[in-house]
Design a protein around this nucleic acid. Structure first.
Lengths: 236, 236
DNA sequence: TTCAAAACATGAACATGGTTCATAATGAGG
DNA sequence: CCTCATTATGAACCATGTTCATGTTTTGAA
């Protein structure tokens, strides 16, 4: 008698429906106009039913972010296990991250909002933990790449731990995207090729770490080829 | 007869009172509990009076951010005009930024929130423009440093424009601070010395750009001395 | 000094939208 | 078919941002 299980499955399917619909509404009408009552109605459920799944609006947003973050982290893990040099893998993280953001335009805005004090502190502890839990495996994977590079002598960590070391590429990638997406910033600066700028600076940082084999920063064609190869082999 | 002027001055003083009190309330009780009615009451004014200064709550927040951003940019301009090598000045930007964030702990959280779609799009166009206007001089100053370095042959821009080039150090600094302040991130990673990590990566990036004179990344004492000197000479 | 008009301050009323909960509907087990 | 537990419902509730009719103050001319 699988009654219990069937109910459970139905419940999960409904939760997914709420999340998918919320995502659609956000995509179509923006984050700020998302309304709990309208979301429930759009799914043909009452408001109260929605609240059986999510303790608050903030909770829903964190859940939404967690789901996409899961996909995001899965991509990173794939990069970490990619058959390529440690240097290429480190760079591939940036490429993959940039492509993921481009494929999901509302994702980074949602993330930015979710990590805001106003949202984060209002969400349930459980939701917050479930989000941060997504990070653990990816941190482990990437730390693994860094440690492999250190062991092979392809990079010299110096005073930094493996985790402190990987924070650099992460910061370049995250910071650059954050700046470029901030309205009124791109207008201020004359950035003709934002993607290329991100990639170049990612390579610059790795060169600065003396991560072997060094990349010739002036080699535009080589950079394009590398990016193209990563997209082909990792994002297929 | 300076009646007109007196009224104007009183009006500005009141606006400042609102802003200062808002800042205090945010510092004491957090961003999310800030209430317009309570803020007005705390200043011994009616709610409506507050709305004669700020079109909405979001407007108030943008105004608040603009004010601090003004101080922040002034510091950056001071760095740009500091009597030191271009390399030292570029690095000093990171140091000054980090110190400023530390001195004003609620500032970066406010900024993060203000640049959120939900807040930014809700604020008046005028307020937004006034905020972005603060950036123009600082972008010009720093671009000037970059161009000076290029002219002196202390750095080779390659395919990047001066503005694209300066985006790198900016992104490292901003991205690193953003990551470190994101709750549940620091817990995940074992970062023992966040400040040092920021500084090292800033130097790494500049080395990667081949920005002369190169810095010995392993030289912990030299780094400390440089930071100490910047704090003394620029932040005095 | 007086007074009409303009400017301004007030805070109760309003509007919006997140959240709850009394009630109704459902369906499982007997 | 009945009973009871579980779940769905959506109108009512509540917190807060915003407005606006009203009262007050200031201004400048008579």
């Amino acid at each position: 008698m699988g009654t219990r299980e069937r109910r459970q499955r139905e419940r999960e399917a409904r939760e997914q429906l709420f999340l998918d619909t919320a995502r659609r509404l956000i995509r179509e009408e923006g984050l700020m106009t998302l309304q709990m009552a309208r979301l429930a109605r759009a799914c043909d459920y009452a408001t109260g039913t929605l609240y059986q799944h999510f303790a608050s609006k903030e909770d829903l947003l964190v859940a939404l972010a967690t789901q996409r973050l899961g996909e995001h982290c899965a991509l990173f893990c794939r990069v970490a296990n990619w058959k390529a040099s440690t240097r290429e893998r480190m760079f591939a993280l940036t490429v993959v991250d940039e492509c993921f953001s481009r494929r999901h335009p509302t994702y980074s805005r949602l993330m930015q909002y979710v990590f805001t004090e106003v949202v984060w502190e209002t969400a349930t502890q459980e939701r917050r933990e479930r989000l941060t839990a997504e990070l653990a495996p990816v941190v482990a994977s990437i730390t693994g790449v860094v440690e492999e590079a250190i062991a092979r002598g392809e990079v010299h960590a110096g005073v930094l731990s493996a985790e402190e070391l990987m924070l650099g590429p992460w910061a370049v990638c995250h910071g650059m995207q954050s700046l470029l997406q901030t309205r009124g910033m791109l207008a201020q600066l004359a950035i003709s090729a934002p993607r290329r700028t991100i990639y170049v600076h990612a390579q610059v940082l790795l060169n600065g770490l003396n991560w072997q084999p060094l990349f010739d920063i002036g080699d535009q064609a080589g950079l394009d080829a590398t990016v193209e190869r990563i997209e082909r082999e990792v994002l297929a």
